[in-house]
Simulated assay, not measured.
Amino acid sequence: MVTIKDVAKRANVSTATVSRILNNQPGYTEKTRLRVQQVIEELSYKPNAVARSMKSRNTQTIGVLFPDVSSMLSSEILHGIESVAHENNSSVIVCHTAADGMRTNKYLKLLHEKRVDGVIFVSETLSDEYYETIKSMEVPLVLVSTVSYKHQVPYVKVDDRHAAYTAVNHLIENGHKNIGMISGNEQDMIAGRPRVEGYKEALFHNGLPFEEKNITYQDGFSFVDGKEGAVQLLEQIPEVTAIFAASDDIAIGAMSALHKMGKKVPDDISIIGYDDLPIAEMMIPPLTTIAQPFSKMGANASEMIFQMLEDDSRTIQSRVLRHDLMERETVKKI
């Protein structure tokens, strides 16, 4: 195996000079640089990335933690992260935490050992334990589709409360007054509670009453949660004419349940989702929904990491990106 000493000996220079050339540091002539580069090519020398990173503290890798790597949401965010990382000659290590504390801590330890240059934490609550572990790594941290009120960490997300308000207000503008909601976990401070608050606020601002029976809370935001939630909601309020689903997966699950109950969307019940996953447009009928710019969110987070790596004293502002209403065919005007 060819080593840096072999290159230095053949080029008749010190190993320190070879190291400076490999790391684009000053201290040599152009003639020396060309001679060393020629020897590197002749010997087919491949620099040891780990050894170089121990000196430069730069492994050109970013760690990304997802609670669910199989979701379309995650793939869109990852696409944005990777595109910017690629532009900055860096790679991405993806960790599937399954929203499990022990598994998350295991991956954080791995990322520490791998000496990643930065960490992007997606769609989960940043616990004190996670925060302290990442802080000890002394690398930039950015949150995506989540926020920490306790720890001052820059984030990229949409305003969930405002976006939910937009969804419910659209139903009201189309004449609906008996509007139910299928929510995610009631205790979820990131995507659960803010969307419920947006739902309630839209009703209040339009002079419509709110009753607890108008909402059904589920364990999460999945297709199954949507199926079960639709059945529960119609048992609680049979007169419902429209449903606000707290995610597209919930909306699609609800549409499946309504179909089995003999209810047509939107003729019998209108429905609006939240996320604008690629499958939303493929549904029959295509799903009206609130669009989150997931790829753009990932790209913004990646950009923020590299900005902090470039200047660690720089203050990075959090970014709240715009949501959009995607009008398709699941909301009927009455």
Rank of each mutant, 00 (worst) to 15 (best):
I271A: 03
T15A: 13
D160V: 03
L78T: 04
M297F: 09
I182F: 12
S91G: 14
L108M: 10
Y107W: 08
P238G: 08
M297I: 06
A164G: 10
M1E: 11
G220T: 06
V122P: 12
I305D: 09
P154S: 06
Y130Q: 07
R103Y: 07
V116W: 13
E197C: 04
G207Q: 07
L203S: 01
F294W: 06
Y45Q: 01
T133G: 03
Q187C: 10
Q292T: 02
A291V: 02
S83E: 14
L126P: 01
E138P: 04
H112M: 12
R195T: 13
M54C: 04
G207D: 07
S83I: 09
D312I: 03
P209K: 11
P154L: 05
S313W: 09
R314G: 03
N12Y: 01
I252G: 00
Q232T: 13
V84H: 04
M304A: 05
F223S: 11
A51I: 00
I179Q: 04
S222H: 09
H162E: 15
A291C: 02
M308Y: 02
D128H: 04
N105P: 09
E201G: 01
E138Y: 07
D159A: 06
D219F: 14
K296H: 06
K264S: 13
R322D: 14
L34D: 14
P67Q: 04
R322A: 14
S127P: 04
S56M: 08
I40D: 00
T288Q: 00
N300E: 15
T288D: 01
G175P: 03
P26I: 03
R20G: 11
N178I: 10
K31G: 10
G180R: 00
R20L: 13
N206F: 13
S136R: 13
V94R: 03
G80S: 03
G80H: 00
Y45G: 02
N58T: 05
T288C: 01
S247E: 10
V231K: 14
V196G: 02
S19K: 12
S302K: 04
A85I: 01
N169I: 02
T3S: 15
I21A: 11
K31P: 05
P293K: 01
N206T: 03
S145C: 15
T133N: 12
E129S: 09
T330E: 04
L110W: 15
S318T: 09
E212Q: 14
Q38G: 05
S318N: 09
G184F: 10
S318K: 03
E329K: 11
A49F: 07
L126A: 07
I334D: 13
G298F: 03
R322Y: 15
Q37H: 10
N174S: 07
P47I: 02
G180L: 02
L277T: 09
A164M: 10
M308F: 08
S123H: 13
Q236T: 11
Y274V: 00
S295H: 05
E82A: 02
H79Q: 14
S302Q: 03
K9T: 13
Q317T: 14
L22P: 06
V224P: 07
M255S: 02
N23F: 11
E197V: 04
V64M: 06
